[in-house]
């Protein structure tokens, strides 16, 4: 299987309350082994998945947000966050985890994985994909 396809994981739901976010992340981690062109999109309540300072002690669930910080090591380096979804929820980039990766094509310089995009830009990115996995 040498063909490389563009895979986008579309995350629309809050991290807790339903299992979608956790099981989406499990697909991303397994899928990273397939050397495809992978990106993640966070929109609607999905932006809450990558918020800083998550504390799940009160709800008795596992806080899996630290796993997002490992995505860079899996060569998952394109995390598109929809600007309108952030704004609608009173959030800014500063509220999100500082997710980074080391760019092997640029002397391993540390770069931000999160890219803020408009709703219109995200629609265009989705249009470019071969496979959209919606969670």
């Amino acid at each position: 299987m040498s063909e490389i396809k563009k895979f986008m994981y579309v995350n629309r739901k809050a991290p807790y309350g339903t299992v979608y976010a956790l099981e989406s992340l499990e697909v991303v981690l397994i899928g990273a082994a397939f050397d495809q062109d992978v990106s993640l999109a966070f929109l609607d309540d999905g932006v809450f998945q990558i918020m800083k300072g998550q504390d799940t002690q009160g709800v008795g669930m596992k806080n899996f947000s630290p796993t997002y910080s490992a995505l860079g090591d899996y060569d998952v380096t394109k995390l598109y966050v929809e600007r309108e979804s952030l704004e609608e929820r009173g959030l800014t980039l500063d509220d999100l985890l500082p997710l980074k990766y080391e760019d092997e094509d640029d002397d391993w310089a540390e770069k931000d994985s999160i890219k803020l995009v408009s709703r219109e830009e995200l629609a265009g990115l989705m249009e470019d994909q071969d496979v959209l996995l919606n969670f």
């Binding site: 499990e26 495809q36 496979v131 996995l133």
Partner: peptide
């Protein structure tokens, strides 16, 4: 889950 990714690669449409 690799079977899902493989299906995404192999199929024309997922």
């Amino acid at each position: 889950l690799g079977q899902l990714i493989e299906a995404g690669i192999a199929a024309d449409r997922l």
